[in-house]
Structure formats: C-alpha cells, structure tokens
Design a protein around this nucleic acid. Structure first.
Lengths: 189, 189
DNA sequence: GTCTATACGGAGATAGAC
DNA sequence: GTCTATCTCCGTATAGAC
C-alpha cells in the first residue's frame, strides 16, 4: 500500500498546480519538482499527462462529494445548506482572489483546448447543480429548482471571476450578501 | 500604407484564434495558417508573441470603446443603455456558448500564466465597469454606482461561463431577463 | 515584405540500469 | 519503484536569400 503514497502525492501536487497555473501550463517538470521525484519516475504511475488530469478530476469529484455530504450532515434546513454553498466564496476568498474558481477555470481551459476530459470536468459543475436543485426541490420549488440552482451557480462563477480580476474582498462579501438576500426573497413567496 | 494590411490580418486572425483556443494554445503556425503567410514573415510585423498579444488587446480596447460609444449614440435613457449591455449576451449567444466571454477568458488565462499583459487585459473589464458605473451615476446612484456596475459585470461573467459549459440558450435568455428585472427593481427605489 | 532554412529550448514520452 | 539518459516533436525566434 505504500506504493500509492507517491501516486497520491503526484495527484495532490498536480491538483494544486493545475489550479494555480492551469493544466496546459503545468509541465511534468513542475509536478516532479513539487513532489520531489524525477521526471522519469512518474511514468511508472501515469502513462500520459491526460491520465494525470483524469486522476485529478476524479480526486476533485470525490472531494466535492465529501464536502456536499458534510454540508448535509451539518444540520439546518435546506435554506441553511444553500447558504453553505454561497458562503464557500467567503471561506475560500483568498485562493479565489488569487486563482479564481477551480471548477470554472478548468472547464474553461479544457473547452478552449478541445480536451476530451471536458465532460468529466463539467461533472464537477453538475455535482453542485444537482445538489442545489435538490435543496430547492425540498423547499417546494419543484418546477424551477434546476433554474434556481443554475442561477446561484452562475452568480458564484461571476463573483469568482471578478474577484480574481480585481482582487476585491469587499466585493465578494457584498455579492454573497446579495445572494443571501435573493434566497430570502425567494423563500418569502 | 499597404504594408499595414498584413499586420491587420495578423491581429484579427490572432484575435479570433485567441478567443477560440486561448492565447497559450495558439501558435505562430496557427496564426500564419489562418492569415495565409509563412511563419517567418510576421517577425517582420511583430518581434515576439507578446507583441501580438499586446496588439490584440489594444485592438479589443478600441473595438470595445467603439461599441460603448455606439450604445451611447443609439439614444434612450441611461437605463436603456444598461440594457444594451445585458442584451449583448443574447446577441452574442452563439459565440458565447461555444467559447465563453472573450474578456473573462483572456483575463483568467493571463492570470494563470502570470503574464505581464494582465493589467492591459483587465483594462477591458474596466471599460465596461466605468461605462456602467457612469450610467448608474446618471440614474442617481452616486454612492453605489460602482458596486452596481460590478454586480452586472459579475452576473454577465457567470452567465457566459455556464452558457459555455452547458450550452444552454434558454438559460441565457432567462438570466438576461432576471438582470432586466433586477434593474427595474433598482429603478423603483 | 515575404519567403525558406535553421537554431534552440522545453514539452511529453521511452529505455533500461539500479 | 526510482533513477539517468535519451528520443522526438513542436514551440518561439533568427538569418539571410529573393
């Protein structure tokens, strides 16, 4: 089982570097340097760079599912759980201001590259989308639950993009407040 | 003056290719092929790839200023002009669904690359930001004009990002409708 | 101004010793 | 399982003929 240690190190280093510098702009040399192994070594663990990308996406899918389950387990009603989502922008404000949203950036890059792993990356968005839609369904918005989920997802993407561009923490807090107000207004109907 | 023809062709081809495939993923070979000239040729016009990027950004700045002026010249009150902005998402829905927002994608990529031209690209956002803030100031929102400008900018960025990911035209129209409703609600106060 | 030919570096990927 | 050495391709960039 020890052998998986190096593989896990590679995946987590690649995960971080893909987020910080993008997929295409991260080389084997970069990852090897971050892990502290030689370039040649990790062809033992991954045959191609695409394989590393797939492992990173799989890793992020697992992490995301765990986060959503943790929010569900934290108690509170459906509205409170939706607020867990929007407040993630505040909790992660530092990395977001520096590097944007990891999901949005990856999907955007893979789309531009015409990369075959784009559907898997889109699956990261779908996790949030379906989780949010489930909450809105619980709140009684059966017809528009998916629309509302996409609405919050879009607003969070816009916030992350502009926070990254303008490095403005007050902007993030203001916009998250507006998302909360939007949710309150929906609940009043 | 004929000599500028080739230069202009290079800039517009690079502009399009940077939008479709990203800056880093567009090679000299790609641009040369699109223009129909040899690779070697355009070192006569641009010393480095960064020089082409700067020319593309300058070109986009000029185009954007012209578009904003056209919206101003089209008549209508400030609110109507703000709607010109949000409805741009519908007018450009096809390229947006295929390639996202050209401004957001470029700023995101240059940030990840740590590229020195990032401030210039950010200037593209600032054009919209200041133009929108000017409109909100005209409408009497002197204290919050910039906040409101950033709010619309963020929402449009989120819409473009998710439209690109999910290729959903109905989503775009729905969200633009919500932006219009938001504006109406602001005007009622 | 435009071309061909070429230099040079860095990328992903492979072979084989240890 | 990890290393060094090496291969090949493609990227930017340059030199010089036309």
């Amino acid at each position: 089982m020890r052998g998986n240690d190096t593989r896990d190190h590679i995946v987590s280093a690649a995960d971080r570097l893909f987020y910080e510098h993008g997929y295409a702009h991260t080389s084997f040399t970069d990852i090897a340097g971050a892990v502290g192994i030689s370039r040649g070594n990790f062809y033992h663990h991954f045959k191609t760079k695409d394989d590393i990308l797939e492992a990173v996406i799989a890793h992020r899918l697992t992490q995301t599912r765990a986060m959503l389950q943790a929010w569900d387990a934290a108690g509170g009603d459906a509205a409170e759980r939706i607020r867990s989502f929007s407040h993630m922008l505040i909790a992660n404000r530092e990395p977001i201001m520096r590097h944007g949203c990891p999901v949005g950036a990856l999907c955007g890059e893979l789309a531009k590259l015409g990369h075959s792993a784009l559907p898997e990356a889109t699956g990261l968005f779908s996790l949030f989308r379906e989780w949010l839609a489930g909450k809105f369904t619980l709140l009684g918005f059966t017809q528009t639950a998916d629309d509302m989920a996409l609405h919050l997802l879009a607003r969070s993407q816009g916030i992350a993009a502009l926070a990254n561009t303008f490095h403005d923490e007050a902007f993030i807090r203001r916009e998250v407040g507006l998302m909360d107000s939007w949710l309150d207004a929906q609940l009043r109907h």
